[in-house]
Each structure stands twice: as structure tokens, then as C-alpha cells.
């Protein structure tokens, strides 16, 4: 695995994506050091999903360059894991939970080879990590939203990637799944993996992530939570739509105390 620590895990330069005439992403630069959890934030239509898809080569950029651990995505593809939005597939597809997870290995298996015991074992281990072992033989249409999300996470886990890109994994999941995802993110970080997450809930940003990128077609800000997640930047990204409810931050169970530098944010006005 070429995960040379001299290079950032993900380096995006001058990325521009346009659907027909309208730019969706404009001249975006992004650097994510290895071993960090980064949230991508921005209003609807800010280009968050497009950014992820452009990094993955699923959307062809008009301009720009993406490097994974210092080399082109094409050559480093095997280092990248992907968790798409839950709604992007048909959950009535005739297949089981275990089968979906094993799909994460199809690329590495190569042509003609069928998944065997090694793939099954890896899939079971991944299901264990997301607390879904009991559902291994379930038909996927019988899962709740949170369970579907955990299946997708397990599928990404068995890719054994170095960089994970997740598109709204917290969208519409139950509290238990949210907890499981957060634990998983921390576990990945402790193993030196890099995770980039499209996120929506401003209130949990400081608790869940190390770094933040604020996006609204252009990059508004990017950096550690302290640097980038400021009133000013949020106002720039979301326009006037964020009401800032400065209140005392409740004691953070993970950092173990108040950090007055991190403001707490309330509602987003529709």
C-alpha cells in the first residue's frame, strides 16, 4: 500500500465541475492530512455530493486534479472506500445482507473468481463491527434505514481502504446507528485511516470531527474545526440562513470539557 506519510491522504486542486453551463463546483482546493476525520458542510446544492463523486471519478470534472496519497486516483483506486447515499440503490434488489457486504471485495477478486470463504469471513467481521451480525441472511428490503446504512458501512469496511468517502451516512438514521457510526469513525481514525463525511447536522460537527470544509460551490473554508468552523464562515457558506444560538457548550464527553472557541449552532432556517 502506497500510503507515504509525506503526502496528504487526499489533495484536490482547482477542481471545477459543471453540469451543462452551470458550475456545481468552482475552483475547489482541498487538502486532507492522513488519519483525520473531516466533515464536508454546506447548504443544499452546494456541491457536497458532487465533490465526493468527482474525487471518486464518478463525475468527470471540467478542470482540476485529485491525488490520493500523492498519486493519481486512477492508480490509487484500491486505497479508496465509498459509502454512497442510502437512497442511491434499489433496496428491493433480490439479495441478502451478507451478499451486499461481500460486493465490497468484487474489485479485488478480479475476473472469473467467485467470492469464497475469505470474503465471507471478512464480511462477517465487518458486519460484527457495525453490529449487524444477526441480519446476515436477511433480504435487504427488510432492513430499516439505519440498518441499511450500517450494511453500506460494512461493505466499505471490507474494501480495507485507507481513505473513506461517505455521503451523508447520518441522514435519517436512528440514535443507535448514529452512535455506531461515530464509534466506527473513531475506530478508523485510530487505525490511521482518513474519513471524509458529507454531513448535515451542525450541532454535532465539533463532537464528531477533527476538520471541516465549508462548501458552497466554492470552498468557503477548510481546516481544523477551530479554524474553519466559525460564525463568519458559516454565514458565508449558508448565507443568512443560520441562526446562531450562542450558548454554553455542554461538556463534551469526548474531549472532557468546554471549549469556548467552539461556538454551538442551532437551527437552520428553511
Amino acid at each position: 500500500m502506497n500510503t507515504d506519510s509525506r503526502h496528504p491522504a487526499v489533495e484536490v486542486t482547482d477542481l471545477t465541475v459543471a453540469y451543462r453551463e452551470n458550475p456545481v463546483l468552482w475552483d475547489v482546493d482541498l487538502t486532507v492530512p492522513a488519519g483525520r476525520l473531516m466533515a464536508i458542510l454546506g447548504p443544499n446544492g452546494a456541491g457536497k455530493t458532487t465533490l465526493i463523486k468527482a474525487i471518486l471519478g464518478l463525475v468527470r470534472p471540467t478542470a482540476g486534479r485529485v491525488l490520493i496519497h500523492g498519486d493519481s486516483y486512477r492508480r490509487q483506486r484500491h486505497l479508496v472506500g465509498y459509502v454512497p447515499q442510502r437512497g442511491s440503490v434499489d433496496w428491493d434488489f433480490p439479495t441478502t445482507v451478507l451478499d451486499v457486504v461481500v460486493m465490497g471485495r468484487y474489485g479485488r477478486l478480479g475476473w472469473l473468481r467467485r467470492p469464497g470463504r475469505a470474503e465471507n469471513d471478512a464480511a462477517l467481521e465487518a458486519l460484527e463491527m457495525v453490529g449487524m451480525t444477526d441480519y446476515r441472511d436477511r433480504q435487504i428490503s427488510q432492513l430499516s434505514g439505519g440498518q441499511q446504512q450500517r450494511v453500506f458501512l460494512a461493505r466499505a469496511l471490507i474494501q480495507e481502504a485507507s481513505v473513506y468517502l461517505m455521503d451523508e451516512p447520518f441522514q435519517g438514521v436512528d440514535a443507535r446507528t448514529e452512535r455506531a457510526i461515530v464509534d466506527l469513525l473513531r475506530e478508523l481514525r485510530s487505525r490511521g485511516r482518513t474519513v471524509i463525511v458529507v454531513h448535515h447536522d451542525l450541532q454535532t460537527v465539533a463532537e464528531y470531527f477533527d476538520m471541516v470544509t465549508l462548501l458552497n460551490v466554492r470552498r468557503i473554508a477548510s481546516g481544523t474545526v477551530d479554524e474553519a468552523f466559525t460564525d463568519e464562515n458559516l454565514r458565508l457558506a449558508y448565507g443568512g440562513r443560520v441562526e446562531f444560538l450562542h450558548r454554553k457548550t455542554p461538556a463534551d464527553p469526548y474531549t472532557g470539557g468546554d471549549d469556548p472557541a467552539i461556538p454551538s449552532f442551532g437551527r437552520i432556517r428553511p
Binding site: 463523486k53 471518486l56 471519478g57 464518478l58 483506486r77 484500491h78 479508496v80 465509498y82 454512497p84 442511491s88 440503490v89 434499489d90 434488489f93 439479495t95 451486499v100 460486493m103 465490497g104 468484487y106 474489485g107 479485488r108 461493505r155 474494501q159
Partner: peptide, 13 residues
């Protein structure tokens, strides 16, 4: 995989 999730198929190369 192509039928279930073409995006993943592309990501896997």
C-alpha cells in the same frame, strides 16, 4: 454489482 450499484462497480475499478 452493475445491476445493484453501478457507482460502486466504478469505484472498485
Amino acid at each position: 454489482l452493475l445491476s445493484f450499484d453501478p457507482d460502486l462497480a466504478a469505484v472498485l475499478g
